[in-house]
């Protein structure tokens, strides 16, 4: 069933264009990098503040009014290009252990983000100038940086399946 859907996706004319046209895949990869730059750049700046670095910046204004917009634009670019790149080689990609690891990392990063948003950040307006956020926020922010960094690593390594071939 799942493979039928992937098979259908692989055979759509859009996936075929991504796979076989001269520019489809390179453009998809480039847009993916634009998105990574916006998403990771903005998340890193916010998380460092949440950890307690650059404490003189009011956390609420930094995150809510400014960086979060960049994060969402980056996310949109990543999802659009990512689905396109995935469709082009759907079956090969789903069988790649490092791709599965990447999706797992994104899922954990997403849960961590939800935890931060709904359990930790309700006091963010109090993290004004020179206020260090509570420990739970600092741990969540550090985890966020680690998870997104590993996601970038895993994403690049999808291009090297030979590294992850099990000796069999």
């Amino acid at each position: 069933m799942f493979y039928n859907i992937l098979d259908w996706l692989y055979n759509t004319s859009y996936a075929e264009m991504m796979r076989d046209s001269l520019w489809g895949y390179p453009i998809g990869e480039t847009v993916h990098l634009f998105g990574i730059t916006l998403l990771f750049g903005s998340i890193l700046l916010a998380d460092l503040r949440f950890i307690g670095i650059a404490r003189h910046i009011p956390a609420g204004a930094l995150s809510g009014g400014y960086l979060l917009r960049a994060t969402w634009i980056g996310f949109a670019l990543i999802v659009l290009s990512g689905l396109s790149l995935f469709a082009a080689y759907a079956i090969d990609t789903i069988n790649s252990p490092i791709f599965i690891a990447k999706i797992a990392l994104i899922a954990v990063a997403g849960v961590n983000m939800l935890f931060f948003t709904f359990r930790v950040s309700n006091g963010m307006h109090l993290w004004d100038r020179d206020v260090t956020p509570p420990t739970a926020a600092r741990i969540s922010a550090a985890l966020s940086i680690a998870l997104w960094t590993l996601t970038i690593f895993a994403g690049r390594l999808i291009a090297y399946p030979e590294i992850f071939e099990t000796a069999s």
Binding site: T37, G41, S42, A70
Partner: peptide, 14 residues
């Protein structure tokens, strides 16, 4: 390289 790129380009762009 890509992680550094996101930090440099992201930081300067912002």
């Amino acid at each position: 390289h890509i992680t550094g790129l996101a930090m440099f380009a992201g930081g300067v762009a912002l």
